[in-house]
Design a protein around this nucleic acid. Sequence first.
DNA 1: ATGACCTACAACCATGTTGTTGTACGTTAG
DNA 2: CTAACGTACAACAACATGGTTGTAGGTCAT
Lengths: 116, 116
Amino acid sequence: MVVGHLTAADADRVFHALADATRRDILIRVIRSEQSVSALARHYPMSFAAVQKHVAVLEKAALVGKKRRGREQMVHAEHETLRRIARLLDAYEDLWRQRNDQITAILEEDDERVEK
Amino acid sequence: MVVGHLTAADADRVFHALADATRRDILIRVIRSEQSVSALARHYPMSFAAVQKHVAVLEKAALVGKKRRGREQMVHAEHETLRRIARLLDAYEDLWRQRNDQITAILEEDDERVEK
DNA sequence: ATGACCTACAACCATGTTGTTGTACGTTAG
DNA sequence: CTAACGTACAACAACATGGTTGTAGGTCAT
């Protein structure tokens, strides 16, 4: 089992890759099942080369990987990266909860003072 | 309670906003406690105007909000947006699990055939 | 072997992003 | 009132992004 730490540059790349509707759609498709680049390209109103670039962005972010099969490049999701970035956002949410807990604690402390 | 649906353009803005280490750091700081733009700016090796722009990107993504207090603009986290984007990534992870469940089911079906 | 298909990659263009500096204006402190 | 502070915004330069077309090479089917 890999510990799996995400550097700041990694997070930059992953969030950047996700910041485009076409790339998110490609990711969803390959999560469902791996597909060749040209099969993916058929779904979008842009050139094959443009889709190829989107896949390259996802690949540099390690959100997908490619595996040659004959003359096709099969694109598959790299679930571990998706998991890591989801956990990173969870950590942000935890920060918020901790802050709220502190505020709640302080307010309760005030209540005690008032009651005394 | 707001239903809270994230359009594709919303997700574009949020992921783009998160795709920069400085902006993620600003977000973390204001999650912990709201701060003025100039207080934030003191932490980074760049001009006040640059930090102002980063805050504007976070604000357009609705990850933070601003509230004037005297001559200062207090920046605070908008937790709801953070929550929504975290849930969006959760949905992607669910897709992966569904796919795995299907594969597992098919394999088990194969096993049954072999056993017969 | 030939043609069709899939991919890779370079060159190019338009636009957007990220930093800078400079100017202007409202607010607070002394 | 004046000086310092906090903010807003415009203009600019450098670079990145997202699309295009064109060329080239590897693989498969006939």
